[in-house]
């Protein structure tokens, strides 16, 4: 049973099987992606951290002579992410934003049975099927989304500038003019942080019928 976690970030771990013959291609794809800026993902601003990792079937840690050797047919392609918002919206963004969809098609193309990031239903079924439940999750700032953090960091540097430009003996009227102008300028970054997200039931259920217990 998946433990539920509070806060604006939701963790997800997806492990898909991948035929070992695709390793060279996967290494090449990962190498190319390491040099891309992923501007679309940054603009969407809903992922705190993510990673893709190829675990070779014969390279799982073997730490004791008593440990049985795993005999697997497939490598593991591991995807972990911490995202903002409900699961459905996250997967929708994957499938419906062209730039993201194209990237995911490349990354998961070598995973067995991957239906493509579009259309949504088979894609969601695939992700849900290969998702693994978490036992423990900790987030240093559960009340903050990626946008909250980006706003706070931007505000922080502007606040530093304002504080540096405010002498201790400034005239009250002059201070009030600058203070109002400053608040006007930073108002878009002053939204509340810490509100807990309420998951809204989606008409297209996030757990497909055939996977419900």
């Amino acid at each position: 049973m998946q433990q539920s976690f509070e806060g604006k970030a939701t963790p997800m771990t997806v492990i898909t099987p991948m035929r070992p013959r695709w390793r060279p291609l996967v290494w090449a794809i990962l190498a190319v992606f390491r040099h891309l800026k992923l501007g679309v993902v940054k603009e969407l601003a809903f992922i705190h951290f993510a990673r893709w990792l190829l675990v070779k079937r014969g390279r799982l840690p073997h730490l004791s002579p008593r440990q049985p050797v795993e005999r697997l047919d497939d490598d593991w392609f591991v995807f972990t992410t911490n995202f903002n918002g409900p699961w459905d919206q996250y997967i929708d963004a994957f499938g419906m934003v062209g730039g993201v969809r194209g990237g995911l098609d490349w990354l998961w193309w070598t995973s067995r049975g991957f239906p493509g990031a579009w259309p949504m239903r088979p894609f969601k079924r695939y992700i849900r099927y290969f998702e693994y439940p978490l036992d423990l999750y900790c987030n240093a700032y559960p009340g903050a989304s990626v946008r909250d953090i980006a706003c706070a960091l931007e505000l922080s540097s502007r606040l530093d500038a304002f504080l540096a430009a405010t002498p201790p003996d400034e005239d009250a009227a002059a201070f009030a003019r600058r203070w109002c102008a400053f608040l006007d300028a930073v108002a878009p970054t002053l939204g509340d942080t810490g509100a807990q997200l309420q998951e809204i039931p989606s008409p297209h259920s996030k757990v497909p019928l055939e996977l419900r217990s």
Binding site: L30, F33, V41, A45, F49, L53, V146
Partner: peptide, 10 residues
């Protein structure tokens, strides 16, 4: 395990 493709937002 090494060799990952990581992403960080900030």
């Amino acid at each position: 395990m090494g060799g990952e493709l990581p992403y960080a937002a900030f």
